[in-house]
Design a protein around this nucleic acid. Structure first.
Length: 287
DNA sequence: CCCACGACCTGTGGGC
DNA sequence: TGCCCACAGGTCGTGG
């Protein structure tokens, strides 16, 4: 999936066509993605106006004028394409060529601004739901969710507290959305490399100083990735079709057997598997 | 509580 | 070229 920076990039790409727009037509082309669509999904959206398009962790939140929130998660391979509307370069010119892959086009939104926004998701790990705005915080998707990593709630004090006494590897703790919400495999690997912390280190054994470095590393890598428009992985492009470039700045992720890029380090990036997922790190400078 | 593992689902890339 | 396996950004549930 898109991790937080990619979801944020998608949000920024969709805002000009969705914020303030009324949904004139909604097409739901299958009964489910990862989960079934809610009853009356199309009917509850058709005619509604999107007042704001927000993000919480890796979720997109479209606040509707009817009091519902359209909640969208992109899973691993979810993406949007925009045609027409405010971002069209010229009348009739598509910003993003119509997809050659219609079989994975699962949801289509058409706005009163003339834009068509199509959701594609080959693996269908993504999902969409409608939640009452007043019930968002207590909804199972959000209740117990940790702080935003770029917000004030994520800091050395709270992270040290979360790590205290835990023998779980620090990598697993950072992937746990209850600890901090929005990190995924790539940016955790990157943050651990920047902070010089081994992904295998038991969380409770990470020193206070390293915890502080981790907080800074997480914030920095996410901010830089957002600035670069996210990372273009195999299935992902920004919502407006632009390609993110941050993947070229990965220091550890996907760089198995390459020399460690840290200044003065002579190590080599290794790949190990932790709970079924690849971790890339340098055993020389990450302890 | 911890952790490993499988499930969900499809596509792609590498090795042979 | 073809086939098979490993692997892919996330989340959820089970069982030891």
């Amino acid at each position: 999936m898109p991790e937080l920076p990619e979801v944020e990039t998608v949000r920024q790409g969709l805002r000009p066509v969705l914020e303030g727009a009324r949904l004139e037509r909604v097409e739901q082309r299958r009964p489910d993605l990862r989960f079934a669509f809610p009853d009356g999904f199309v009917q509850r959206l058709t005619g509604a106006r999107i007042e704001a398009l927000d993000r919480r962790a890796k979720y997109l939140l479209a606040h509707l004028d009817r009091g519902d929130v359209l909640v969208m998660h992109l899973g691993m391979t979810g993406r949007f394409e925009i045609e027409g509307g405010a971002v069209a370069k010229r009348p009739g010119e598509f910003v993003y060529a119509p997809s050659a892959d219609p079989k994975h086009a699962h949801v289509v939104f058409e706005t009163d601004g003339g834009a068509r926004v199509t959701y594609f998701d080959p693996r269908r790990f993504g999902f969409m739901g409608l939640v009452g705005a007043d019930a968002l915080a207590t909804h199972p998707w959000f209740a117990g969710m940790g702080p935003e990593p770029l917000g004030p709630g994520f800091n050395a004090k709270m992270l040290a507290q979360a790590f205290a006494g835990r023998r779980q590897p620090v990598k697993a703790m950072l992937l746990d959305q209850r600890v901090v919400a929005g990190l995924g495999n790539i940016y955790v690997c990157e943050a651990l490399h920047r902070a010089g912390v081994s992904p295998e280190r038991p969380a409770g054994e990470v020193s206070k100083a390293k915890v502080a470095l981790l907080v800074t590393a997480v914030r920095d890598v996410l901010a830089e990735a957002i600035e670069a428009g996210g990372s273009t992985l195999r299935d992902y492009a920004a919502a407006d079709g632009a390609l993110g470039y941050f993947q070229h700045r990965f220091r550890a992720y996907g760089r198995e057997q390459e020399p460690c890029p840290k200044d003065g380090c002579r190590g080599v990036i290794r790949r190990i598997v932790q709970s079924g997922r690849s971790s890339f790190f340098c055993a020389e400078c990450q302890r």
